[in-house]
């Protein structure tokens, strides 16, 4: 038994025949925010997807331990219902399904999977409105079809709403800050900070220091070519901002 919420041991992952993650190690204790930075194509999104159980990617060796449970073989919904949430870098559209309906459906599935009682319609409505308000999302938006016709930044805000509604134990933010304007970045990061408590942890993937300044992560990891090549404090982000990833190769 370890004190870590997430532990990744020597993870090797293929996309098709190509090895993308090449022996990745990473631990995230409870109640911490960690960040991953790395060049385009280094495998950050692949890592997020593999942690979420996306079977487009094949784990050839290594293990993923989440809440002291080996989740390497689990299905995406099983992992999700254990309390792992990934905010997608490119959120999908679901035509004809309103945001409200989607939220209700996923919230219910989540409660049921965890043996909790499902909220009645009016309690749920109240609950969602509370979360939506934090993000400046009004009722009219909740009636729109999920991500259909939304701008890139608005989609990220929708992702964050789902995050607040599901209130997971481990949150992976895959470039949630990309595409957000200055004000939206404030709103979203405030929302995330408000959600933080002793029982949850975050893995934040980003290209920008700005979000990290807001979230003040305990650790920053540098991912290059499928491996964590360096881990350190928030000052690592400064180094990257100034010198790029060259020095890590």
């Amino acid at each position: 038994m370890s004190g870590n919420l997430l532990e990744i041991n020597d993870l090797h992952v293929n996309a098709g025949d190509k090895e993308i993650l090449k022996g990745l190690n990473l631990s995230i204790p409870f109640n911490e925010i960690h960040a991953i930075m790395g060049p385009n194509g280094s495998g950050k999104s692949v890592l997020s997807n593999v942690l979420s159980g996306n079977e487009d990617y094949k784990v050839t060796s290594g293990q993923i331990i989440f809440k002291n449970k080996n989740i390497t073989e689990l299905k995406p919904n099983e992992i999700s219902n254990l309390g792992l949430f990934m905010a997608f870098q490119y959120p999908l559209e679901i035509p004809g399904v309103t945001i409200m309906n989607f939220l209700k459906t996923i919230h219910e599935a989540n409660r049921r999977a965890n043996g909790l009682e499902v909220l009645g319609p009016s309690d749920f409505l109240k609950y969602v409105r509370e979360k939506a308000e934090i993000l400046g999302i009004n009722d009219e938006v909740l009636k729109r079809q999920l991500n259909v016709g939304f701008s890139g930044g608005e989609k990220k805000r929708n992702e964050t709403l789902q995050l607040l509604v599901l209130n997971p134990v481990l949150t992976i933010l895959d470039e949630t800050d990309s595409g957000l304007d200055v004000d939206a970045l404030d709103i979203v990061s405030d929302g995330i900070v408000g959600m933080k408590n002793e029982e949850n942890s975050f893995l934040v993937i980003t290209h920008y220091r700005k979000l990290l300044d807001k979230l003040s992560p305990s650790k920053v990891h540098i991912l290059v070519d499928g491996r964590i090549v360096e881990s350190g404090g928030p000052d690592l982000a400064d180094k990257i901002e100034n010198k790029g990833f060259e020095s890590f190769n």
């Binding site: 979420s52 159980g53 996306n54 487009d56 299905k75 995406p76 919904n77 999700s80 219902n81 949430f85 990934m86 997608f88 959120p91 999908l92 559209e93 679901i94 035509p95 004809g96 399904v97 309906n101 989607f102 459906t105 996923i106 599935a109 989540n110 999977a113 079809q145 789902q162 599901l166």
Partner: peptide, 27 residues
């Protein structure tokens, strides 16, 4: 597959995910 994975990542099983997407399609 991406749409399905998106729903699954949110905790729906396959049947629930498909029902949801079909429901949206037929709305």
């Amino acid at each position: 597959e991406d749409q399905l994975f998106y729903c699954l990542q949110r905790g729906l099983d396959e049947e629930e995910a498909i029902a949801l997407i079909v429901n949206g399609f037929c709305k």
